[in-house]
């Protein structure tokens, strides 16, 4: 198993002369890997009995979810099922009324969002939430914020070490830009980019945070086939190359069935299914909930 992963990594490295190498080094540097064998068994995220309601509407009721290291988990469900709400609870933007979230056995339910992001739970948003006034590269460097190691006085005085640190961060960011194939637009203000490119820039900003877990909220929504393929390729590459677990909300069942290791299904705030793509496609409850009447026929 361990040899396998190394092999994949090697191959990727050969296939792309550029890529996420710098970022991977950052991540690997801080990752404790006592035992390569156990790597994929480790539980990185645990959501326990999350309940949250908005004025009588139960957005989530008693949802449980587990995420293992190196896993690509897709969350599916009809509109308004509570998928985005679940991600918001995990990243600390909504405070759940009941239940807890654990990240690598640390209870993070009451942590503030920026702390959670700093720990490595990074995400993209359903409705793009980039820093519209900044260029692509600056958005990505802004994503590096928690990992930049000098305080603002050093920045204002622009000491040599601050300058060096800036250059290092820029190198990492440029790496991400290269990986996402956005070299052409790196200095363009994101407000002026097309929808697909903005989604991509957002992915880049999430990557810049050195994710331990990447949460993607409908990364392919509203894209054409080409763009979808690109994003799917990026997701698979990130997943394999950085060896991080990814949670992805997606409506396109084709993509989900193709790339997900495991699928969780939400419906009206309830988790109604959890399993491999094959299991899910056979699960009657899921099929009828997800496809409505059509599924029953």
């Amino acid at each position: 198993m361990a040899v396998d992963t190394r092999d994949i990594v090697k191959k990727r490295e050969q296939r792309y002369s550029y890529g996420l190498t710098l970022l991977r080094d950052c991540i690997e540097e801080t990752r404790d890997l006592p035992n390569e064998e156990d790597f994929f068994k480790k539980n990185v995220l645990r959501v326990e009995d999350i309940t949250i309601s908005f004025g009588g509407l139960n957005a989530l009721s008693d949802v449980n979810l587990e995420l293992r290291e190196g896993e690509l988990l897709a969350i599916i469900g009809p509109n308004g099922a509570g998928k985005t709400t679940l991600l918001n609870v995990i990243s600390g933007f909504y405070k759940a009324q009941k239940g807890d979230v654990y990240f690598q056995d640390t209870k993070i339910t009451n942590y503030s969002s920026h702390k959670i992001a700093e720990m490595g739970i990074c995400r993209t948003f359903q409705n793009i939430a980039l820093y519209t006034g900044l260029s692509v590269i600056d958005n990505i460097i802004a994503g590096r914020h928690p990992h930049i190691k000098y305080n603002f006085l050093n920045g204002m005085l622009y000491f040599p070490w601050a300058r060096r640190e800036e250059a290092r961060q820029r190198a990492i960011a440029e790496d991400i830009v290269d990986f996402l194939e956005m070299e052409q637009v790196r200095n363009t203000t994101v407000g002026m980019l097309s929808y697909g490119l903005r989604k991509r820039a957002e992915l880049g900003r999430a990557l810049a945070l050195e994710p331990r877990i990447l949460l993607l909220d409908e990364p392919m929504a509203g894209m054409n086939l080409d763009e979808k393929e690109d994003i799917a390729r990026f997701i698979v590459d990130i997943h394999e190359f950085l060896r991080i677990p990814i949670v992805m909300i997606e409506h396109d069942m084709g993509v989900v069935m193709d790339i997900a290791d495991r699928i969780a299904v939400l419906d009206f705030g309830l988790k109604i299914g959890d399993g491999t793509p094959e299991e899910i496609s056979k699960n009657q409850k899921v099929v009828s909930a997800y496809l409505g009447k059509a599924g029953e026929q």
Binding site: Y131, A142, H145, A206
Partner: peptide
């Protein structure tokens, strides 16, 4: 210098989208 370094970018991030900035580690 401030505007082109860490805190300056955080300022603009807060200006452009403060709730996203919080979730993105600022």
């Amino acid at each position: 210098n401030l505007s082109r370094t860490r805190l300056g970018r955080a300022f603009v991030a807060v200006r452009d989208n403060d709730i996203a900035a919080e979730v993105m580690g600022i």
